[in-house]
Simulated scan of single mutants.
Amino acid sequence: MPGLRANGGYRARMQTNTPRRSTRGTRRTIRLTRRGRIALIVTGAVVAGTAVAVPLLTTDDEGESRPTSLVIPEGWRATQVYEAVDKTLALPPGTTKKSLAKANLKLPNDAEGNPEGYLFPATYPLGENPTPEKLLTAMVDTANKKFTGAPVAAGAQRNALNVYQAVTIASIVQAEAADEEDMGKVARVVFNRLERGMPLQMDSTINYALGRSTLETSTKDTKVDSPYNSYQRMGLPPTPIDNPGDEAMSAAINPTPGDWLYFVTVKPGDTRFTADYAEHQRNVAEFNRVQESASKEAQAK
């Protein structure tokens, strides 16, 4: 059955098309899961553009300030990390991404050279003569220490996953959860859908496929031809979709017990999880009303 375990683990790279869902109703009412992390929108759209302001600064002998460390927030994508390193080190755009070929990063075989998910969010001192290779190596080495230790490795095995699959689930949890308290429930939705052979249908994977961060996902978006389209493809996406932190990783290996299959953040602080699709439709309808009301208020100002 699609999406279920194969050879002791989940089929993370399965890309079988699923039956087309009904497109009746509005753009939002057909969505089975709803990305609730509004804060991540701000992070993706704004922080990456101001990454040089994130590090601690020091003043040199000529009175000029220069960064002494670089802070990588939870949930940043690799592209955002590359941009931040370029800006912090005052390098031409694209330099850090090009440096991957010579960085010799110690990534798992499943990553196939893609460091997404392994650029661990933390504060990294620049030290003397910092280079993209040094910073990327520090991030990946930190991730390996976090992910290959007993808690994560044992937790992944307990859930019939390998570590790379656990990191992939953690990246979805990081993108989808409205707050830390919801992470375990979001992880459970992922597991429940995988176990039932259901497509994940996560907007965050669509956003990753399209290289954007938004709460608006149209029916057309859900038909994009991409291995990251979790509306059309079964199982996990082929790689993580961002770089998760400790809390998301913990949720991925310790999902909260429950039977939930759907969730929607109606408004900040109000994320509703349910196993009943009819109830979920009612929650989505309320979400739509809240959005429409907010839109009218914004237009009136």
Score class of each variant (00 low, 15 high):
182 D>K: 06
204 S>K: 04
119 L>I: 04
111 A>Q: 01
85 V>R: 02
207 N>T: 08
171 S>I: 00
3 G>C: 15
271 T>S: 08
101 A>C: 07
44 G>K: 14
207 N>Q: 08
148 T>I: 06
284 V>G: 03
84 A>F: 03
88 T>L: 03
104 N>E: 13
294 A>D: 10
242 D>V: 02
273 F>I: 04
4 L>T: 14
45 A>Q: 15
229 N>V: 07
128 E>V: 01
173 V>R: 03
153 A>T: 12
132 P>C: 11
294 A>S: 12
223 K>G: 00
165 Q>P: 08
46 V>T: 14
205 T>H: 00
21 R>T: 11
276 D>A: 02
155 G>F: 01
216 E>L: 11
151 P>F: 02
204 S>Y: 01
243 N>H: 04
103 A>C: 11
35 R>A: 14
207 N>M: 06
5 R>I: 08
228 Y>A: 01
43 T>I: 12
129 N>W: 02
243 N>W: 05
227 P>V: 00
18 T>E: 11
206 I>L: 04
294 A>T: 06
175 A>P: 02
92 P>D: 07
261 L>N: 01
217 T>C: 02
34 R>D: 15
263 F>D: 08
94 G>C: 05
32 L>W: 14
152 V>Y: 06
192 N>A: 13
269 G>P: 04
4 L>H: 14
67 P>E: 12
86 D>A: 10
68 T>M: 09
98 K>I: 03
87 K>D: 08
52 V>G: 05
17 N>E: 11
295 S>T: 11
70 L>H: 04
243 N>R: 06
286 E>Q: 15
144 N>T: 12
65 S>N: 09
282 R>M: 12
7 N>H: 12
189 V>S: 07
142 T>M: 12
140 V>L: 03
110 D>F: 11
136 L>E: 02
91 L>D: 07
3 G>M: 11
108 P>H: 06
33 T>V: 07
91 L>T: 08
76 W>Q: 07
230 S>T: 13
263 F>T: 13
222 T>Y: 06
170 A>V: 07
74 E>P: 05
112 E>T: 02
186 V>E: 05
119 L>V: 04
219 T>Q: 14
154 A>H: 00
171 S>F: 00
260 W>D: 07
237 P>W: 02
249 M>C: 05
196 R>S: 10
24 R>E: 08
125 P>Q: 08
221 D>A: 02
160 A>H: 12
189 V>N: 08
230 S>P: 01
85 V>M: 10
11 R>A: 08
51 A>H: 03
177 A>H: 01
131 T>F: 04
127 G>F: 00
269 G>W: 06
133 E>Q: 11
208 Y>A: 04
26 T>E: 10
247 E>W: 12
287 F>W: 14
294 A>F: 09
54 V>F: 13
128 E>N: 06
221 D>Q: 01
224 V>F: 00
268 P>V: 07
55 P>G: 09
